[in-house]
């Protein structure tokens, strides 16, 4: 979609170029590179960061989002513009764990503090480029294991389950699948099938209906996000198996709250996305102000959410 990119570039240019002269000399400037703002999760995250900026008032935030989940080019362009602008710190949620390593290296070489959050950059790519960079983010694999373990505990050993995966190639999708696999192994579950529904409700609904035909004895579903869990729950309702199949999801979006309450969704995982960007910015500012550089993986909070947590 060239056209989409064109528009994105236009928005990008206008957001970046306009207020350059407005930076107060004393306040540090933080460039925030986000993923798709059409995604509720990232939109909330950005709002959290903006609230943090307003609350603290001691830094200036410049945020850039993408048009779609896979629009890597917009992110690269954003980082390069931030380098030109000589911002003090760049906080980036990479849409691709490899493609963004070279521009990030350029930023580091230019003396900018860079924090990688949400999705970790590829270790090997970092090594090859000679980049040392800490990662601030949730443990997707650990989170998935929390949800998976909840399911295993509910169903018991030998229960027949399927996994609904996220986008093939997306790092968080891969991590969540690994986490589910950990639970399957630890809980001695019987994994019948594992397929992608590309994070989408309608596709998950179709996919799970068909899985249910192929395996009528499914007892549990591990969905890699809540949007897909919504579609799965609807398929269970349509098949008249409400209450006979347990579902866990991930992300704790508002739309699953009623399902948790009705116990149609056993559990989901909250990674406190709203706080994640703000948290990463705080850490970046500490480094900018002379704090010790971060190292390795700085894990952010995750929490299992069940019907008990819903009022």
């Amino acid at each position: 979609m060239k056209f989409a990119k064109f528009i994105a570039a236009g928005i990008l240019a206008s957001t970046i170029l306009m207020p350059v002269s407005g930076y107060a000399a004393d306040k540090p400037v933080v460039g925030l590179v986000m993923k798709s703002l059409a995604n509720e999760f990232f939109k909330n995250m950005l709002e959290g960061a903006k609230a943090d900026e307003a609350k603290r008032g001691d830094y200036t935030l410049k945020a850039v989002g993408m048009q779609s989940e896979t629009d890597v080019e917009t992110q690269i362009n954003a980082i390069e513009s931030f380098i030109t602008e000589k911002v003090d710190a760049i906080v980036v949620a990479p849409s691709d764990s490899r493609a963004l390593v070279p521009p990030i290296k350029r930023a580091i070489d230019a003396g900018i503090t860079v924090i990688n959050f949400d999705v970790a950059l590829d270790e090997k790519a970092k090594e090859e480029a000679g980049v040392k960079l800490a990662f601030v983010g949730p443990d997707n694999r650990g989170g998935a294991k929390l949800a998976g373990d909840a399911l295993a505990k509910k169903l018991g050993e030998g229960a027949k389950v399927v996994i609904i995966e996220g986008n093939p190639g997306a790092d968080n999708a891969a991590q969540r699948k690994l986490g589910f696999m950990d639970s399957v192994e630890a809980g001695k579950l019987d994994l019948l099938d594992s397929r992608t529904a590309h994070w989408e409700t309608e596709e998950a609904n179709t996919l799970f209906s068909n899985m249910l035909t192929a395996h009528p004895d499914i007892q549990g579903v591990l969905a890699a996000n809540d949007s897909m869990a919504l579609g799965v729950v609807k398929a269970i309702d349509a098949a008249g198996k409400t209450g006979k199949i347990e579902v866990v999801g991930f992300d704790n979006i508002p739309a699953v709250q009623p399902l948790l309450k009705e116990k149609k969704l056993l559990a989901t995982v909250d990674q406190f996305g709203q706080l994640m960007a703000a948290d990463a910015i705080d850490k970046a500012l500490k480094v900018v102000k002379g704090g010790a550089p971060l190292e390795g993986w700085v894990k952010t909070d995750i929490k299992l959410v069940t019907s008990d947590d819903v009022k």
Binding site: F3, A4, L37, A38, E40
Partner: peptide, 23 residues
């Protein structure tokens, strides 16, 4: 329609502020 594809998508996001409607 390539243009309206973007217009409609943007309008949908604008109307909902990118959130999902349920219940």
């Amino acid at each position: 329609t390539l243009g309206t594809l973007n217009i409609a998508r943007g309008a949908a996001l604008q109307v909902t502020n990118a959130s999902t409607i349920y219940s």
